[in-house]
Amino acid sequence: MLEVLNLSVKYGDLQVLFDINLSVRDGEIVSIIGANGAGKTTIIKTISGLVKSVSGEIRFLGKRLDKLPPHLVAEMGVMQVPEGRGIFPLLTVQENLEMGAYVPSARKQMRESMKKVFEMFPRLEERKSQLARTLSGGEQQMLAIGRALMGRPKLLLVDEPSLGLAPILAREVFQTIKSLNSQGTTILLVEQDVRQSLALCHRGYVLENGRIVLEGTGSALLGDERIKRAYLGL
């Protein structure tokens, strides 16, 4: 579904990604793990068009994504739960969700999508007329996920969903991601919580200093000695 081939990205003179190759198949959850500053978020931003690559290709359903501006990437069915949630603070919860269904293909199904999101997150329905800035951190994360689902994504990019959440809430978010996937959404997950995200995913990639150093199934990576030493403190 998504193929990233030999992707390199620079911020000015500073190269942050080197020859990244990765793929996400239909129906999978794929995790990218790595330390802060390894370039995880940059991969997500390059896929969604916010950051331009210097070389390499990104293909989605056979079409090139890497030359498109972000709004056209969204129109192709790639939605994102951005790092730090990125809710619209002075829009109501409902308006935030409506913005998620802004792309023409999702607009017609706005009503049904919203019903589904409210079924999944009843808290959001209770608070639908509140300004989004009045929500708690966990609720804001639900809103960010719900908003992305409103766009009927073929591929969902999830960037650091557990950041700044209490462990219980983080676990809830991972549960949500898992159940979304079992309902058929393909997910590319970027996450610092190595244990949780490897337990969750079908396959994972390990990113170090802008290079992919290891890849494999989630369980294989969890059992890998290097991962245990470097990321799990075992």
Binding site: G49, L50, P70, H71, Q80, G86, L91, Y102
Partner: peptide, 15 residues
């Protein structure tokens, strides 16, 4: 209004 509040995320929503 969404663009005024967070232009980057608005573009991710297809705006």
């Amino acid at each position: 209004r969404a663009t005024g509040q967070n232009r980057q995320v608005a573009s991710l929503m297809g705006v």
